[in-house]
């Protein structure tokens, strides 16, 4: 068990999210920074589908009631284990009674805390992810609060070496200024040439309306040349909708499964984590990509994860 000592309602149990239930109106949910979650689980040798804690409200503190290995990835934030400072993207052994403390990030928005064996929240519709908007999944369908006790799954054999091990961040992590890559979506041709040019040329600012459901951006107004009402249709995380206000919203992990607003583009899957780590006021830019680039970027991330998983296994075995 781990005991939550200090938390905010935005901190929740998350995994890779739900597949196969969109047609019941069930959002994907899951980690907003998927590579960070994956890295934390890989360092510990957990199942790729293991659940961890997504921390978006700080400071965050928890106590280990029994010894366990812990990995902390994602946003850069001062992290201490019973006083000892942990490097970024690091995994180490915690003893019973140890306290993990995470200060507000200096870069990014969300930190992932994985524990050996994973957080053993009940499987619901194929996942342990919390759906905060609708109140199900994860730990009692809600964000974590002080006093919560989270059970852990069975731990694999093997211990981390003294001092712990770290992960090289995933591809593209070091270049914060790189544009988010897009594929054009269904209504792309219906936007005026000006709107399309502005969309990829402008500096967009993340507004305060940014949560697990979506992220509203501030910038130039995008005018749709052709006005027609769309019928409701399925949407995925990454969909960039343009409501009548002309200000885009990027749909994220807890996006409604269907929508009716025009879609100008979709942020490619491999770049979605950037929005999970965006803070209100952050600036970002977009660039068009090809399908091949979008798939190659996903494969690059998958290869990085495979290498990390193998390397971490060597250290745990020794």
């Amino acid at each position: 068990m781990i005991e939550i000592l200090s938390s905010g309602a935005l901190n929740s149990v998350q995994d890779r999210g739900r597949r196969g239930s969109l047609a019941s109106g069930v959002s994907r949910s899951g980690a907003m920074d998927r590579p960070a979650l994956d890295a934390a689980n890989a360092l510990l040798g957990n199942d790729a589908g293991a659940a961890a804690i997504e921390v978006a409200a700080f400071p965050f503190r928890l106590r280990f009631q029994a010894g366990a290995a812990v990995a902390v990835t994602g946003a850069l934030a001062e992290t201490r284990l019973s006083g000892r400072r942990l490097p970024p993207w690091w995994a180490t052994e915690a003893r019973a009674g140890d306290e993990l403390t995470i200060a507000p990030p200096t870069l990014g928005a969300r930190v992932y805390v994985a524990v050996s064996g994973g957080i053993d929240a009940p499987l619901l519709l194929g996942a342990r992810a919390t759906e905060l908007k609708s109140g199900y999944g994860g730990h009692e369908g809600r964000g974590l609060r002080r006093g919560d006790l989270l059970p852990l799954g069975p731990r694999l054999p093997g211990r981390l070496p003294e001092g712990g091990i770290g992960a090289l961040p995933p591809p593209g992590r070091s270049d914060a200024g790189r544009p988010l890559r897009l594929l054009p979506a269904a209504e792309w041709p219906e936007f005026s040439e000006d709107a399309r040019r502005l969309f990829v040329a402008a500096d967009w600012q993340v507004t305060a309306e940014a949560d697990r459901q979506g992220c509203r951006l501030d910038g130039p107004e995008l005018v749709r040349a052709r006005r027609r009402e769309l019928m409701s249709h399925g949407i995925v995380p990454g969909t960039v909708q343009v409501p009548p206000s002309g200000r885009p919203i990027v749909q994220l992990a807890e996006a409604n499964t269907c929508g009716g607003y025009p879609k100008i583009a979709t942020v490619i899957e491999a770049d979605l984590w950037r929005l999970g780590q965006a803070m209100p006021g952050d600036r970002l830019r977009f660039a068009l990509a090809s399908r091949d680039e979008a798939v190659a970027a996903l494969r690059e991330t998958a290869d990085w994860l495979d290498r990390l998983r193998s390397a971490a296994a060597l250290y745990r075995a020794s």
Binding site: S21, L22, A23, M231, H233, T257
Partner: peptide, 22 residues
């Protein structure tokens, strides 16, 4: 194929692009 989502006179199919070609 991960999700097949009927909308109003439309259908979205979500899949793993590393497992199956678009």
């Amino acid at each position: 194929i991960e999700d097949v989502v009927p909308g109003m006179n439309n259908l979205m199919v979500a899949f793993d692009p590393l497992a199956v070609e678009a």
